[in-house]
Design a binder for these strands. Structure first.
Lengths: 223, 223
DNA sequence: TCATCGCCTGAACGATCGTTTAATATACTG
DNA sequence: CAGTATATTAAACGATCGTTCAGGCGATGA
C-alpha cells in the first residue's frame, strides 16, 4: 500500500490509513492490523504513536473535524451554503465525507461539536441571505437552519442510497460534472425554491397542527 | 433479562434481542454472547436457531423490513406521507427506527429494497397529492420523491443529532406530544410549504446552473 | 568511537470472538 | 410405552482481537 515516494510521517500515514479503514468499515469493524498494513507499518507502531485504538479514533475525529473546518468557508463563499454537502468533498486521498458519514452515526463528541458549528454557520448564511432579500424570513430561524443542515448531512450519510436511487455520488465533487449532478441538485433547488405544498394544503396542515398543539397548551394565540 | 411471563419463542426472543443490540451497537459492535444474554439463552442456541451471526443479521433485516411494510400504510393514510419518519415509530419493544438507522448506513440488500419501496410509495403519495391539487406539480417526479424520502430517512439516521439540536426524538411517537414535536415539524412544514428562496434567487441559481451545464456540454462537443 | 535516544519490528500474551461439540432435558410420535 | 426428533446447555476450540514487550536499527552528539 505504501509508495516509496511517500513523504508523510509514519504517524500521519497511520492516521490516514485509519480514516480510510474507519470510513469503510466503521470503528468496530476495523482492526489495528489492517490499519497498520494500510500504512505499511507494524501493529505495534500504531499503539506506540497513538496509545490505543480508541485514542487513534479520537485523533482521526479531531483531524477530520479540523480538515472540514478549513474547507467549509470556501463552500459557503461559493454560494452553495444551502447544501452542507458542498463542504465535504473528498480532500485529497482522504475520504472525509465517508468518514463523517460513519462517525455521525457512531457518535463522537468532536463530530457532534462540528455539526453544531455547521448549524451555526447555516444560521449566519441564512440570516445574510434574508438581509439581502434572497431568502425568505422565518419564525424558526434556528430550527430551519438546523433542519437544512440535518437534511444535507443525512443525504451525505445515505450517500450509497442516493447514488443507487438518483445515480449521483454526493461524496464526490459535484461541480466537476454538473450535468450528472443535476439529477440531485435540480429537485433540491425546486423544493427549496417553491416548496411542494399548495397554499391551501399548507394552511390546512398548519391549522390542524395548531389545533393539536392548543389541545395541550391552550391560551396561546396565533400570530 | 427474560421475564417469566414471556410467551415468545426462544428464537423470537433471540431475534428481538439481536435487533436491540444491533440497533444500539451496530452489527460488528454486537456479540452473540450479549445477544444470548439479552434473550436469556445460551450462545450456542443462537447459532442453533440461526446458523451464524450473519444469518441472524439477515433474519433481523427481513423481520424489520416486514414490520415496517406492515405499518407504513397507516402512516401514509394519516396524511403525513411527506415525512417517512412517521412510518417508523418504535413498534412495541422493538427499536425499529434505530435499527433501520444503523442498517441504512451499514448496508443491507433487504433494507435497500425497502428504501426503494418507500420511494415508490412517496411517488404515489405525491402523485395523488398533485391530482388533488394539494401538491405542486414538478418536472422531477421521481427525483423529488426520492429526495424527500432521503431527507426523512437521513433525519431518522441522525436522530441523535436532531434530538441534541432541536430537542425532539423523532424515533418516538411524535403525535403523543405535538407541542414538543412542533420544533421539528413546524420548520419542515414551512420549507415544504413555501421553500426558502425568493423568486429572484431561484431564477438566478437555475440560470447559473444551466450555464455551468452548457459549458461542459459545449466543451465536450468541441473537444 | 561509543553511548543515547527515538523509531520501529516480530513475537507473544491474555481476552474475547464466532462457532463446534457432546451431552442432557423435553416434547412429540407410533 | 419405547423411540426419535427437537430444544437447550456447558465446555471447549481455533481464530483474531488489542496490546505488551524485548530488542534491533539508524541518526545524533560528545
Amino acid at each position: 500500500m505504501r509508495s516509496s515516494d511517500d513523504t508523510r510521517t509514519a504517524a500521519a500515514r497511520i492516521r490516514d490509513a485509519a480514516i480510510v479503514e474507519f470510513a469503510a468499515n466503521g470503528v468496530t469493524g476495523s482492526t489495528i492490523r489492517k490499519i497498520a498494513a494500510g500504512a505499511g507499518v507494524s501493529p505495534g507502531l500504531v499503539i506506540h504513536h497513538f496509545g490505543s485504538k480508541d485514542q487513534l479514533r479520537v485523533a482521526c475525529d479531531e483531524y477530520i473535524a479540523e480538515l472540514i473546518r478549513d474547507v467549509k468557508g470556501d463552500a459557503m463563499a461559493s454560494g452553495s451554503g444551502f447544501d452542507v454537502t458542498a463542504a465535504f468533498r473528498e480532500v485529497g486521498d482522504i475520504p472525509a465525507a465517508k468518514y463523517l458519514a460513519r462517525t455521525l452515526v457512531d457518535g463522537s463528541p468532536h463530530v457532534a461539536e462540528l455539526v453544531d458549528e455547521l448549524v451555526g454557520d447555516a444560521v449566519k448564511y441564512v440570516a445574510t441571505g434574508v438581509e439581502a432579500g434572497m431568502i425568505k424570513p422565518t419564525e424558526h430561524e434556528w430550527g430551519r437552519a438546523a433542519i437544512m443542515t440535518i437534511w444535507g448531512l443525512g443525504a451525505l450519510v445515505l450517500h450509497e442510497h442516493v447514488e443507487r436511487l438518483i445515480g449521483v455520488d454526493i461524496t464526490a465533487d459535484l461541480s466537476e460534472n454538473p450535468t450528472a449532478a443535476s439529477a440531485y441538485i435540480a429537485p433540491v433547488l425546486e423544493i427549496y425554491g417553491q416548496g411542494i405544498f399548495t397554499e391551501a394544503t399548507l394552511q390546512q396542515m398548519q391549522e390542524a397542527f395548531v389545533d393539536a398543539s392548543t389541545e395541550i397548551n391552550q391560551g396561546k394565540e396565533t400570530a
